[in-house]
Design a protein around this nucleic acid. Structure first.
Lengths: 202, 202
DNA sequence: ATACTTACTGACCTTTCAGTCAGTAAGAGA
DNA sequence: TCTCTTACTGACTGAAAGGTCAGTAAGTAT
């Protein structure tokens, strides 16, 4: 009794392929990754790829979307539900969240968007609407709440929630490019938070 | 008397080709740019490309190096030669320098390095040694000088000159990806400088 | 003018890879 | 057990693009 050459798994395939593609794109980028390589990683034939995704580009979009889907709401929920005072929240859960981004799949998505984004504007829009925009809005709400509570002064910081992202972004890029020149991303983020607090505390 | 079909310009060619390649890579990225396209922009035949650069990859490296060469020393000189007090310097020349980076060729180089860097480690090293490392060192010296003069307190900021780069980096990425969602990069940078100053002033 | 060197051209070769499709076998249904 | 459906395979195709090279003509020396 010969063991079957393959199993039919219509339901599970898309995820499996998407995951394999994510790993491959993460290592080599979009252009340099061959569809056949992804197929191999997914334990599937090249032909099957085209049953589930019409083109390589469709696959790419699916990968981005699948990563985005998974962990958009983490920060937002935490921000809205906390009972800590604003300073403790920033130094605690928010700092933790920020520190964990540079090593996460988000970093890979950013890299892919930087490389391929200009030729996939709808994808960039999608990412902006679903991640960036909502994340920034959450931060702004948090700051304004602090102001309303009398914990923070009214400052420019409400208009530039990007000040929170900046060290995270830098940490990400640093890790991608200069992995071997170590940078203490955690401490960098802590210092930025110290600075912001010193600046806005009432 | 027919006008000549081409001119011989052995001396000038490399620059011309490099410039054309920079423009093409800036628009479409490395992988999506055809060598023939670069040749066309440079007003040259495809064959000639391979007389001056052995492979497309060599051309890529030459492009990065040529951009890096041109304007490394701008910041560093200014930092060393100024006679302003530290705060005025940060709000003046330093801020100006930072604001002008996101729209400069440096941004393109960063984008190319993020996309292609992982497969060209020597190039990343080259960039790190010649730009990043020297830039950071200059900032650190500047901060330490301020401390020595009694203008600044001794803080973590000396260890994280990246705090100055962070908003610049974010501004760059933002411009590359979200060009149409405007962000006032200048004000973002000013605010970061305000924060840093508030944090470190003696 | 003439001969000579070499920067330059452009047609061609070769490889690579996205995308196709005729055929195969897993597994559900009767 | 014997269909019958369809998820799946893998050899193939066509095109795009990196790289080559025999030939041409711009410029130089005599």
């Amino acid at each position: 009794m010969p063991e079957p050459r393959y199993q039919r798994r219509k339901q599970a395939r898309p995820q499996e392929i998407t995951d394999a593609a994510f790993a491959a794109f993460a290592e080599n980028g979009y252009a340099a990754t061959r569809v056949e390589e992804v197929a191999k990683r997914a334990g599937v034939s090249k032909g099957l790829m085209y049953l589930y995704f019409k083109t390589k580009e469709e696959l790419f979009k699916a990968v981005i979307r699948s990563v985005v889907m998974r962990r958009v709401d983490a920060l937002i929920e935490v921000v809205e539900d906390t009972e800590l005072c604003s300073e403790d929240f920033m130094r605690g859960p928010m700092a933790d969240f920020m520190k964990q981004v540079p090593g996460s799949p988000v970093a890979v998505v950013i890299r892919l968007l930087i490389s391929e984004g200009p030729r996939h504007p709808e994808l960039v829009d999608y990412y902006y609407e679903n991640v960036v925009s909502r994340g920034l809005a959450a931060i702004t709400r948090f700051i304004d709440r602090g102001v309303k509570r009398g914990e923070f002064r009214k400052t420019d910081v409400s208009d530039f929630p990007q000040l929170f992202l900046a060290p995270v972004m830098l940490g990400m890029i640093w890790k991608l490019l200069f992995a071997k020149r170590s940078l203490n991303t955690d401490k960098l983020i802590d210092t930025q938070i110290d600075m912001i607090l010193a600046y806005i505390k009432a």
